[in-house]
Amino acid sequence: MARLADPRAMSPSRPGRTRTAPPVMPPLFPARGRYRSYMLFGACCVFFLLSSLLFLRVVDALAAGPEAWDDLLRQFRHPLYLAYNVAALAGFVFTARRFFFQLFAKSQPPRIGPLPRPPLAVLPPLLGAAWVAATALIFCILWGAFP
């Protein structure tokens, strides 16, 4: 039996004229079928929260001076940190695939004010190109090649 939905789901503001059986959630929700991928997508919010805090630490260490910075990089070598970061990387890539490459293009309105949207067919390649460019830029900067 599927989980019950909110008892007011899809009910009229005045109750119907006869007794009804309460609404149930879709039978596969949340653990199976396509919902699993959706719930995984939702769970990835943890990486957004934690990685954001991690970057706060990075800034903090940079502000605190060279010892703190070196100390932080040393901490990052700890297997737990590494494991988290590998998982976070996977999470962000998963989110990017689901949101950025699958949903983002079609979420663009046909025009925003006077600006027309580029044809839908070219948007995913454009997004892909933007992603590659941004990633390459960050790689170069952090690699020390630029600036």
């Binding site: 910075w69 070196d70 590494l82 590998v86 962000f92 989110t95 990017a96 933007a130 952090l142 690699w143």
Partner: peptide, 30 residues
Amino acid sequence: GCLLMPAFIFMLCIAAPLGWLPEGALSYER
């Protein structure tokens, strides 16, 4: 998150601590 985070996490939180980056690329000064 989608556009920038993967690259930052890879470089800063994985590659740098594991010493995959060139010497000095992420020294404190730089």
